[in-house]
């Protein structure tokens, strides 16, 4: 089985988002980075499929040079090789991102056969465009199911469970297919030290595509004006219990 997982490097924003002076990006000087959460589960799922079926597993990202960290993280838990579409750090819009991914998938498939299953996150944590997987699937003329919390390969089919209205809708797609997944699909493992050592030696192909003009053009980012509150302190330690229960009674949820 040959699988591909597409991931995005995103900052871990912590308690408060601070923007750069030009309001075009998040100030990340003091932040760590991670794989966007939904895609982290995509990586884990691809590794589990490889553990059951063997074959080839590839992780792909479009992002700055530093995004190699997220490719290596993926390879550290078992992905065999990486493809890095290296950008100058400027954000690409969904149409451009999907276009570049389609080009590199076609090239890889021409060289080493079709991907049976391609994983995307349902939406990235930062830009939240909700469309890259569907755009890629359409260009490749493959079926795609979105928002999945269950993915099970059975012969030539993949059974997909999509969270909807509290329950789950079930789809069955013929392979090759594209799926977009959600956090909760699985519990991603942490890389081991030997895994990290191996990841450093795994093959990584780097390409530098050219960014086309954007039709969804970012003007600026704005941190929404939350009510900056100062919490009313009801007390310290267990002595606060009476004041808390007074509050619960006042709200009408104590009985």
């Amino acid at each position: 089985m040959k699988t591909l997982v597409c991931v995005k490097r995103v900052p871990m924003t912590g308690g408060r988002i601070v923007l750069t002076e030009d309001e075009q990006a998040i100030e990340t000087k003091h932040l760590g980075f991670a794989i966007s959460p939904h895609e982290e589960c995509g990586v884990e799922e691809a590794v589990r499929l490889w553990e059951h079926h063997g074959g080839d597993t590839v992780v792909l990202t479009l992002g700055p040079a530093d995004a190699e960290e997220q490719l290596r993280d993926s390879m550290a838990i078992g992905i065999a090789r990486g493809i890095h579409l290296v950008t100058d750090g400027e954000e690409w819009d969904p149409e451009a991102t999907a276009g570049a991914i389609v080009d590199v998938i076609r090239a890889d498939e021409a060289a080493s056969g079709l991907f049976d299953l391609i994983f995307f996150g349902n939406e990235s944590a930062d830009s939240g465009g909700f469309q890259i997987g569907l755009r890629v699937a359409h260009a490749l003329d493959r079926p795609c199911a979105t928002g999945l919390k269950g993915v099970a390969v059975d012969g030539d089919l993949v059974r997909c469970e999509q969270e909807e209205g509290g329950g789950r809708d079930v789809y069955e797609l013929p392979l090759p297919a594209v799926v977009t997944v959600l956090e909760g699909l699985n519990l991603p493992r942490y890389p081991s030290v030997p895994g990290r050592m191996r990841a450093g030696r795994k093959p990584l192909e780097a390409l530098t595509p050219v960014r086309p003009a954007s039709r969804l053009e970012r003007a600026r980012l704005v941190v929404p004006e939350g009510e900056s509150k100062q919490a009313e302190v009801l007390g310290r330690g267990p002595d606060a219990a009476a004041a808390v229960v007074d509050l619960l009674e006042q709200i009408g949820v104590a009985s």
């Binding site: 509150k229 919490a231 009313e232 330690g237 267990p238 808390v244 229960v245």
Partner: peptide, 23 residues
Amino acid sequence: MSIADYAVVGDLHEVLPAISAEL
């Protein structure tokens, strides 16, 4: 604390049982 309306400063393992007991 900057988005909460109310706060109790303390260890939840002491505070929560006290709230439950008071209820």
